[in-house]
Design a protein around this nucleic acid. Sequence first.
DNA 1: CTTGCAAAAGTTGTCTGACAACCTGATAAT
DNA 2: ATTATCAGGTTGTCAGACAACTTTTGCAAG
Lengths: 236, 236
Amino acid sequence: MEVTPLTKRNHYEEITEQLKRQILEGKLKVGDKLPSTKAMSERFGVGRSTTREALSALKAMGLIEIRQGGGCTVIRSEPEAEIKLPELEALRLNRKTLLELIEVRQSLESSIASLAAEKRTDEDVRALKRIVKEMALAVGDDLEGERTDIEFHLALVKATHNSMLSKVLDSIMTPMELAIREVRRVELYANRTVAERLLEEHSDIAAAVVSRNPEAAAEGMKRHLRNIERILLKYL
Amino acid sequence: MEVTPLTKRNHYEEITEQLKRQILEGKLKVGDKLPSTKAMSERFGVGRSTTREALSALKAMGLIEIRQGGGCTVIRSEPEAEIKLPELEALRLNRKTLLELIEVRQSLESSIASLAAEKRTDEDVRALKRIVKEMALAVGDDLEGERTDIEFHLALVKATHNSMLSKVLDSIMTPMELAIREVRRVELYANRTVAERLLEEHSDIAAAVVSRNPEAAAEGMKRHLRNIERILLKYL
DNA sequence: CTTGCAAAAGTTGTCTGACAACCTGATAAT
DNA sequence: ATTATCAGGTTGTCAGACAACTTTTGCAAG
């Protein structure tokens, strides 16, 4: 097992990190046994209690198993990656979480709008225009309204031609959708006044992107999401 | 705080369980401070190292925060509401991916800096100042330089008091770290000229956050990340 | 009275050495 | 061959001692 010298940060954190990294990177595979605490402590140059704190942390993360007298074994080598249903339930009802999500979205999407305005191709423009048109036809229809709304934002991030940005936005949009859906979808899209205002905002953003105006695009997106925030807050 | 007698199970597991239950059940609320390790050890009738192993586990679960000399604080009282970030870890890190990551980071972190400037508490300020000081001492030391750099950005996102934002940033920082490590950590932190410039930039950002100036903070962060981008590009 | 700062007290971080509890494998007795 | 026993390694735990850090306290200068 390789060890890199410890930095000034707390030793037990550092050791936890290093072991975790080796497990996640596959240098330590499932079923592998870790060296004894004594051996590891000597190699890291720390006391045994410090190493034990690291092992306790790894056990709490579910990465290793510790059997008294029998050593430590790796039992998982991937980060856990699943959303549990009961947690989503909590997500929807949790006002604070929703506000945090909106804040993240505001941060991301204003940059996205700006980048899209810089990098969009003609094909991106075509897609945006198509979606805005569909959105106009969907005023008053909650299901269609939601679909076109989401599609607009996905088309926008696609126009940045940055796949990372897509992934990150996606990870935010999914819980966001779930949070809104079935709770207040109707208020957002079925109310004609609101829907028309949303349409106008989307249209402004699209126009700014088409004319390659990053500042206006970002500003439009910020206005749009602040508006959404206000509407959602009224019903929470 | 109530304690029930220890069972046959390992003491540190038992203590972890009891504390976890009290936190999830709400008997210990967010912001509450746990008793000192000495006090808890006496009440449970165990040694201090045993209690520390339990605390290390709770920290790994993200339930508590441990500050040297400052005690342990409950920072979450619900089971984690995870955002699923699709297999970012498993990505091949080529030049294009790295550029995309930097772009995402620029988008996120300028907002983060701005939000931090609005929402930071005095404690956040203390943390930032401490890190900048450490960073100054670390000039020329690549390992310490990297650690303090990462810690700075984590402290900044923490100052936004938005856990979603933390998670999102975290998910792109991990691959970013790996990428930088693979490429040229040395050039970034061991070169005194570069390290001093980075220090200055971090220092500017911290100052803007301290004086609650969101625009300056965002601007400083943008400048900082553009600079990083330039340096990395030289070595790709 | 307020402010600022230094000392004190309290808390976490770490090491050491010791012993108990437990697992494993080898050896000896049956 | 089966069983009993033992030796060595490993985890679990404790107590005490400092180091590093934070918060509080208390005193002195303004």
